[in-house]
Amino acid sequence: MIGVLLVSHSKLAHGMKTAVEFVAGEQENLFSIGLEEAGIASFRTELKSLVERLSKDIRQLIIVCDIPAGSPGTNAYDVFAQTDLEIEMLSGMNLAMLLEILLMREGKEFQQLIADGIKAGKESVDHMDFSDEDADEEF
């Protein structure tokens, strides 16, 4: 079974979890932890508590963080690297990425799920041009 952990600065991870579950319903083995003003020590305590609570059925974990090399991601990776789980970490958390990963995790191999999640995340980033060039034309 594949677990997904969202980590971020402040409440972004919690908000993304809420958004995913708004769109796709409650998700089993989806977790969120935010680095709050209480600091790194408190954040790491939450991570270690999650390690203890994880289902023994989870063999692989995808950690999705907000920005590359940020404290939430690097600390989460550090804590979970000390477990027996197979871990992958992605940055650039967005809703398209998370939906792809979460809704397809039952039917895909772990590494393919990672690749498809990254692809979905990248493809969802675009410049939306709503300018109406013909706005001044008369009918």
Score class of each variant (00 low, 15 high):
3 G>A: 05
4 V>I: 13
4 V>M: 08
5 L>H: 04
6 L>Q: 01
6 L>T: 01
6 L>R: 01
10 S>H: 14
10 S>T: 12
11 K>E: 12
11 K>W: 08
13 A>Y: 00
14 H>G: 09
17 K>V: 00
17 K>I: 00
18 T>N: 14
19 A>D: 01
19 A>S: 10
20 V>S: 03
21 E>G: 02
22 F>R: 09
24 A>D: 09
29 N>M: 08
29 N>D: 15
30 L>H: 09
31 F>W: 03
32 S>D: 12
33 I>M: 06
34 G>C: 07
35 L>Q: 06
36 E>R: 10
38 A>G: 06
38 A>C: 05
40 I>D: 04
42 S>K: 00
43 F>S: 00
43 F>R: 00
45 T>A: 14
48 K>N: 11
48 K>E: 13
54 L>P: 10
54 L>V: 07
55 S>Q: 13
56 K>E: 15
58 I>S: 09
58 I>P: 14
58 I>F: 13
61 L>A: 07
65 C>L: 01
66 D>Q: 04
68 P>L: 09
70 G>F: 14
70 G>Q: 05
71 S>L: 09
71 S>C: 04
72 P>A: 01
80 F>P: 09
81 A>T: 01
81 A>E: 05
81 A>I: 00
82 Q>K: 12
83 T>Q: 07
83 T>D: 03
84 D>S: 12
86 E>Y: 07
88 E>S: 12
88 E>H: 10
91 S>A: 03
91 S>T: 00
92 G>I: 08
95 L>N: 03
96 A>Q: 09
97 M>S: 04
98 L>C: 05
101 I>E: 08
101 I>V: 15
101 I>A: 07
102 L>M: 12
103 L>C: 13
104 M>T: 07
105 R>N: 11
105 R>T: 07
107 G>D: 08
108 K>I: 05
109 E>T: 03
109 E>H: 13
112 Q>L: 13
113 L>Q: 10
113 L>K: 08
114 I>M: 14
115 A>Y: 10
116 D>E: 15
116 D>V: 07
118 I>H: 02
119 K>G: 03
120 A>V: 10
121 G>A: 02
124 S>Q: 08
127 H>V: 15
127 H>L: 15
128 M>F: 11
131 S>V: 02
131 S>Q: 07
132 D>I: 02
133 E>Q: 14
134 D>M: 10
136 D>V: 06
138 E>H: 05
